[in-house]
């Protein structure tokens, strides 16, 4: 390995992706994609283009139908403890949050670290309180997820993904359904994470987000890819996107209010 080029966190070669809920239905073919540390990827596509399925594959929750998917340096790890261990280095935020409704918000956030390190709830309480405070969630720490609005639930889901201090964070359509104030807060917070947030000891975090609207994610330093007609198209940086004449792009560029 060349010391100047860090090992990719995710590397897909000629990968075929199936739908998560129906593995006989292929949503994407011939995906070649590499995520190296420090990148901020924006994957865009219309509804049912396979954004979530690709993200789930990138998170190691499903296996590719075909092709090679190196994932945290491991090749096509399909089952077992190696996959579970790899997930501890990776954060995933689902579009709906997927919080555990029977637990309080603080318990939701504490669960991954308690499970990983075999700790009692009071042993992780200061760490959880610190993260909740950093994310302005302290006011609802004792509430159940259904007692707060969807805006706050999505923030809790992000906190739960960050508690293990991952090396890469994958977010499925994070701006979907958020109010204006929460959208602005989230974009600013993700930017801080990418540049190095105190919670992560100022270490820059690699980010991958999916979206059905490129507009809010415009930035010269982010990388863009388009999922269209069952294909993965690497568009490059924003200035390349602006110059691209890809037929799938207009749909993703004119939805910003």
């Amino acid at each position: 390995m060349n010391p100047t080029s860090p090992e990719p966190l995710i590397e897909m070669q000629n990968v075929t992706v199936s739908a998560m809920r129906d593995d006989s239905f292929v949503v994407l073919k011939k995906v070649d994609w590499k995520v190296v540390p420090g990148e901020f990827w924006v994957l865009g596509g219309p509804q049912y283009s396979g954004k979530t399925d690709l993200l789930m594959l990138a998170a190691g929750l499903v296996s590719p139908v075909e092709g090679s998917c190196r994932w945290m340096g491991m090749e096509n790890v399909s089952t077992g403890d190696a996959r579970l261990a790899g997930r501890l280095r990776m954060g995933l935020v689902f579009q709906g949050g997927q919080l555990f409704n029977r637990m309080s918000i603080a318990e939701n956030v504490a669960l991954p670290i308690r499970y990983r390190d075999n700790l009692e709830a009071d042993q992780v309480a200061p760490e959880v309180a610190g993260l909740l405070d950093a994310m302005e969630l302290s006011f609802c720490a004792g509430s159940k997820p259904m007692q707060v609005s969807a805006n706050w639930r999505s923030r809790v889901a992000l906190a739960r993904a960050l508690i293990l201090k991952p090396e890469i964070l994958l977010l499925d359509n994070p701006l979907s359904g958020l109010g204006g104030r929460h959208r602005a807060w989230l974009q600013d917070f993700l930017d801080q994470l990418w540049k190095g947030h105190p919670w992560l000891d100022n270490r820059p975090l690699t980010l991958v987000v999916t979206t059905d609207d490129f507009g809010p994610w415009q930035s010269s330093s982010r990388r863009f890819a388009l999922l269209h007609d069952g294909r993965f198209q690497n568009l490059g940086f924003w200035m390349d996107v602006a110059q691209s004449s890809h037929p799938g792009l207009p749909e993703l560029l004119h939805e910003t209010p």
């Binding site: 998170a59 689902f94 709906g96 997927q98």
Partner: peptide, 18 residues
């Protein structure tokens, strides 16, 4: 149905164990 099982897996928690 609510996706909590996938969430457990994503957090490195084995659903069969937990």
């Amino acid at each position: 149905a609510l996706g909590e099982v996938e969430a457990l897996e994503a957090l490195g928690i084995d659903p069969v164990h937990y």
